[in-house]
């Protein structure tokens, strides 16, 4: 479903040029569980942003479910993000003035889904993530693990095909981190394509496919299922 071919991206930092993505070619199939690891500055996050249509490649081709994303305008890309892609960020990116429930509801609200249809959907998700009791709390009243669960709830409320997680456990203690990882893996088992960018070796090792990036290029790409 994800098919990128010869993708490049460079940044200019001061007077030096950083090759964040160096001629990357990668296919990821429906329902895969992929971790992307590598040292800082290896281009992991840039790859994730590219896949999430948050950033555009300088060159190369990216097709998502057979749609060549290079030809889409910003509105069409926004629609693809809304319908196909869920994001989980290291710093949660919750809206501070909205309650947990409202944060989860946000994508539905933006999509114009009426309130009476939103509420049962959101209630089900909060229940599933074990934070139903925290529905009316503001983000600053929640623990880190709870916040990340709210963010996960928000990322899956539109039932996307792909879940992109950038260091989802990076700000969490090990116990919360483990819980969040388990939630993500459960979602993957239910069919969602999961791509996790992480520094955390123990988390990265759990993925069935492990991509290691160095200096903007794929260094290794190990797949348990192929090996088996």
């Amino acid at each position: 479903m994800i098919d990128i071919c010869g993708v490049n991206k460079t940044f200019t930092l001061g007077d030096s040029t950083v090759h964040a993505l160096n001629n990357i070619t990668l296919q990821i199939g429906q329902g895969e569980y992929v971790s992307v690891m590598g040292p800082s500055g290896s281009g992991k996050s840039t790859l994730l942003n590219m896949l999430g249509l948050l950033d555009r490649p300088d060159s190369g081709r990216y097709s998502l479910n057979g749609v060549d994303t290079g030809t889409l305008d910003e509105n069409e890309r926004a629609r693809l993000r809304r319908e196909q892609i869920g994001f989980v960020f290291q710093s949660y990116h919750l809206i501070a003035r909205l309650t947990a429930r409202e944060n989860v509801e946000m994508p539905l609200m933006l999509a114009g889904v009426p309130a009476r249809e939103r509420h049962p959907l959101v209630a089900g998700i909060l229940d599933k993530l074990g934070i139903a009791g925290r529905a009316h709390h503001l983000p600053n009243q929640l623990s880190g693990g709870e916040r990340q669960r709210v963010a996960i709830g928000r990322s899956i409320v539109m039932k996307p095909a792909i879940l992109l997680a950038d260091e989802p456990t990076g700000n969490l203690d090990s116990r919360s981190g483990k819980e969040v990882t388990e939630i993500l893996e459960t979602l993957n088992r239910e069919g969602i394509t999961l791509l996790v960018v992480t520094h955390d070796l123990s988390m990265g090792e759990r993925a069935t496919r492990r991509i290691r990036m160095v200096d903007g290029a794929v260094d290794s790409d190990l797949n348990d299922e192929e090996a088996a």
Binding site: E74, N75, R81, R82, H93, M106, L110
Partner: peptide, 16 residues
């Protein structure tokens, strides 16, 4: 700005 980025990531088009 971060909130605007989030809204865009959640699929809000520019007009919204």
């Amino acid at each position: 700005t971060a909130e605007i980025g989030l809204l865009k990531a959640l699929g809000a088009p520019a007009s919204q």
